[in-house]
Design a protein around this nucleic acid. Structure first.
Lengths: 403, 403
DNA sequence: TTTGGTTTGTTCGAACTCCGAACTTTATTC
DNA sequence: GAATAAAGTTCGGAGTTCGAACAAACCAAA
C-alpha cells in the first residue's frame, strides 16, 4: 500500500495490463520451471487462453523457450516452458579497493567467465582500463546481446544523478563513472553500493527468497555498510546514502572515526578493528611500557588464519570484533526487524566462532519479538556479482512502476 | 522497482487499468483542487475523453463533486471539480496510557467532534467502553456512511493477524482488539502503532508532502518509538515490530531497561529519562549523601513548565534529554537518510531549546551527505488522529497493489 | 481396433479499457 | 455577425482479458 507519487507517475493503458501479466508470468516460470501452460494457468488464475497468448509473446521475445514434453497419467502431455537464460548477457563488475573482478553472466546468474585486475587509484585510469577489459570480455564471449553492465562499489550512489557520492576506501568522491563507461562500452551501466548489491542478490537469487520481503545485508570489510530491502524494495533514502549504520556511534566517546564521529560501529567491528585489537593486545604485554613501534600491523586475513590454527591472541581479537558486530546487528534487528539478515565478508570464514557470539549479543540486546534469521553469505565476491546481475535485470522481472 | 511477491499477487484485468487511472485522478484532484477536467488532462497525460469518463464515474461514486465555474480570458469556462469530503466519515481513536481521544473526521481530516475518556486498564473493559463511545459518536454525528475506525496505539501490531503484540505502557500484550470492536460497532477497524500513525499523517496530510517519500516519525513520551516510511510505504518489518529503535543501546552499560537490554535510547532520552535526570540532580546536592527519598518524582509536564520559567535545574535535565535525543536521531539520519524526520511529543513545546541541541548532535554524529530536515510536530494528538484517518482511507488513495 | 474419458492447448466473439479525431458547447474579440 | 479559442462530448478503433467451445493428444478398457 504505497502512496502515488504525483511528481513521477505513469498512467495505465491496455499495454500496462499486458506488461503486468507478462511479468507475473515470467516470474512464475522463473520460480517453477519447467512448467506447462496449464500449470501457469493454475498458478496465476488467468484464463487458459490468456496464458497461451502471453506465453506466445514471451517466446517470440525470446524470454521463454519451449522444452521437453511432460508425462501425465491421463490426457494430453504438456509442453514445458522454461526461461531462456541465453536471451541476454550481463557484465558484472565488483570494485574493491585492491582488486576489481569482472564476470560474464547469463540471465540466471551463471558465470561463464570470471577475471580480475588491480583497481587503479586514479579514477580516469580506472575507467579506461575497466572499459577496455569489458569490451575485451564481450569480444571473447559473444552473445546474442548484452543487456548492460552492473557495477558494485564500496560507496554510495546518488539517487537522481547516479554519480558516486563518496567511496572512502577508494579515495574517490563526487564522480561520474556511468557516463564515460557507457560511452566507451556502448552498454547501459548501472551502479550500486556493495551492500545494496548483496541485498539484491539475496532477494533475487538467494537461498531464502520465498516470501522474504524484508532483508538486510551487512558487509564487513575495512568498513561496515548496510543494504536494506523493505517491502521487496531497495531502500536508498532521499539522496542514496541510506544504510550508513556503520557510522552510528556504538560507544559515544570511542575511537575517532574519519567521518568525524566517535566510536562508530565500523571502528569497533570491522576487519580494521580486529587488526587494531590484535595489535593493541601485543603492545601492552602485561604492564610493560610497550612502544608504539611494537604494534606491527597484521592483516585481517592472517588473523583469520591464526584463529583457524587456534592462536589465543587472534581468537581474543576476533571475539572483540564479533561482540561489537553482534551489538550492531542487534540494533538492526531491533530497528528494522527483517526476515533475514545476511553478513557478508571475510569474517564469515570463521562463522562457527563468530556466529554464536553475534547470536548471544542479539539475544541479549534485541526484542525477542523479531524473528530475524542471521545468516553468513557464502562468497562475498559471488554475492556482489550476483547483485550486479540482479541490478541490470531487475527492470524486466520486477513489478512495473505503476502510478 | 519492487520484486513481485509470488505468494501474494494479483493479475491485471481491464478493470485494473481503470482502477489505476481513477486513483491517479483522485490524487490529482486532492492535490490541485479546484481543478478542471482540462487541467487534469494536462496533469495526467490522459486523453480528454478518458478524463471525462473517469471523472464521470468518480462523480457517480460520490468521490468528486462538480463545483463553481471558472474564468478564463478566452474560450468555454471550465467546470471545477473537487473532492467530496463528506463522502464518508472516519472515526479516529488515539489510545494513550492515561486517556483515549476519539474524533469524527471527514475525508480531508477535518474533525467535526473531539472527545476523550480515561483509558481503562482492563482490555475487555476498554473494548466495551470504547465501542460504546464510538456508537454514541456515530449516532450524534450522522453521515452518509462511515468508512471505518482507525486506532492508534502505543504498541506494535502483528502484520498478518492484526493482533496487538505488546504495549508496555498500557500493560497489554497478545491481544485481539480488532475483532471485538468490529463486532460491537459494525465497522471495519484498523490498528496501528502511534509512531507509524504519525508517519502516515505526515505522508498524507503533512506540511512537507510534496515529493517526500522517505519520512521518519519519532514519538517521544515515556518511551520512544519510530515510524518509518520508505519509498512512500510504511515499513513494518517481517512481523510488524520494525521501528523499535527506542530499545537500541546508546550507552552499552547504561541503566537497565525493562526490555532486558541496557542503556536503551528511551532510557536516556524519553520523558521518563528527563524526570530521572531532574530527580537525580536533586538527590546529590554537591557531595551531600542524599538519601533516595529525596528523589521526589516531578512529572515531565512540570519540568517543561519549570524550563519555560527559566529554572536552571529543569533546564539541565532537559538538556541531557535533548542531547541523548539528538544522538539517537543522528543514528536514524545516518542509517535511514529520510527527507524529513518529525519529532512528536510534549518535548516539542520547548523545541526552541531542544532543537538546537538535537541539531548540534546530528551535525557532529551523522553524515553531512544526508539532507534530512528535522521538524517538530504541531500537536501530538492531532498527528496521531490524522494518522488514523489516513490509515482508514489510504486503501482508496494509494496505488493499487499490483502484481 | 474402437470407443470413451481426460487433460492440454487454441480459437473466437464479448466486454472492457484508453486513444484520437471530429464534433458540440460556451465564451471573447474584432 | 464572424472568427478565434478553450472546455467538454461522442464515437469508432485498437488492445487487453474472459469464457465457452473446439481441436489435439493421450490412455485404458471393451
Amino acid at each position: 500500500m504505497h502512496k502515488i507519487n504525483l511528481s513521477k507517475f505513469q498512467v495505465a493503458t491496455n499495454e500496462t495490463v499486458r506488461d503486468i501479466n507478462s511479468r507475473i508470468m515470467l516470474n512464475l516460470v522463473r520460480r517453477h520451471q519447467p512448467v506447462s501452460r496449464a500449470d501457469l494457468m493454475r498458478f496465476s488464475g488467468l484464463q487458459r487462453s490468456t496464458v497461451s497468448v502471453i506465453a506466445g509473446r514471451l517466446i517470440a521475445d525470446r524470454w521463454l523457450r519451449e522444452g521437453a514434453v511432460g508425462n501425465l497419467p491421463r490426457g494430453r502431455k504438456p509442453t514445458f516452458l522454461h526461461l531462456n537464460p541465453e536471451r541476454c548477457g550481463v557484465i558484472g563488475v565488483d570494485v574493491q579497493p585492491a582488486r576489481t573482478t569482472l564476470a560474464v553472466s547469463n540471465m540466471e546468474s551463471q558465470f561463464s567467465a570470471l577475471e580480475s585486475m588491480p583497481t587503479a587509484r586514479d579514477p580516469s585510469e580506472f575507467v579506461a582500463r575497466l572499459s577496455h577489459r569489458i569490451t575485451d570480455l564481450i569480444r571473447a564471449h559473444p552473445k546474442k546481446s548484452y543487456e548492460g553492465v552492473g557495477i558494485s562499489l564500496p560507496g554510495r550512489i546518488e539517487v537522481g544523478s547516479e554519480r558516486l557520492i563518496f567511496a572512502p576506501t577508494l579515495g574517490w568522491s563526487e564522480l561520474d563513472l556511468k557516463t564515460p563507461i557507457e560511452r566507451e562500452t556502448g552498454l547501459p551501466v548501472k551502479l550500486e553500493n556493495a551492500a545494496n548489491a548483496c541485498a539484491l542478490a539475496e532477494l533475487w537469487s538467494g537461498q531464502h527468497i520465498d516470501g522474504v520481503n524484508n532483508l538486510v545485508a551487512v558487509t564487513v570489510s575495512d568498513d561496515i555498510s548496510v543494504g536494506m530491502i523493505m517491502n521487496g524494495q531497495l531502500v536508498r533514502g532521499s539522496t542514496g546514502v541510506a544504510g550508513e549504520f556503520g557510522h552510528v556511534s556504538q560507544v559515544l566517546d570511542g575511537p575517532k572515526c574519519r567521518c568525524g564521529n566517535s566510536g562508530c560501529w565500523e571502528m569497533l567491528a570491522s576487519n580494521a578493528a580486529a587488526v587494531r585489537y590484535y595489535a593493541e593486545s601485543a603492545s601492552v604485554p602485561k604492564g610493560a611500557i610497550g612502544s608504539k613501534s611494537d604494534m606491527a600491523i597484521v592483516p585481517f586475513g592472517d588473523i583469520l588464519r591464526l584463529v583457524e590454527q587456534g592462536d589465543p591472541r587472534a581468537g581474543k581479537a576476533l571475539n572483540q570484533m564479533a561482540h561489537h558486530l553482534g551489538i550492531g546487528i542487534a540494533m538492526l534487528v531491533t530497528g528494522l526487524a527483517p526476515d533475514v539478515l545476511m553478513v557478508v565478508g571475510e569474517v564469515t570464514r570463521v562463522w562457527d566462532k563468530v556466529g554464536p557470539i553475534v547470536a548471544e549479543a542479539v539475544k541479549r540486546r534485541s526484542f525477542t519479538h523479531a524473528v530475524t534469521r542471521i545468516v553468513p553469505a557464502g562468497s562475498e565476491v559471488q554475492s556482489r556479482l550476483r547483485g550486479t546481475v540482479a541490478l541490470v535485470l531487475q527492470k524486466h522481472f520486477s513489478a512495473p512502476s505503476i502510478a
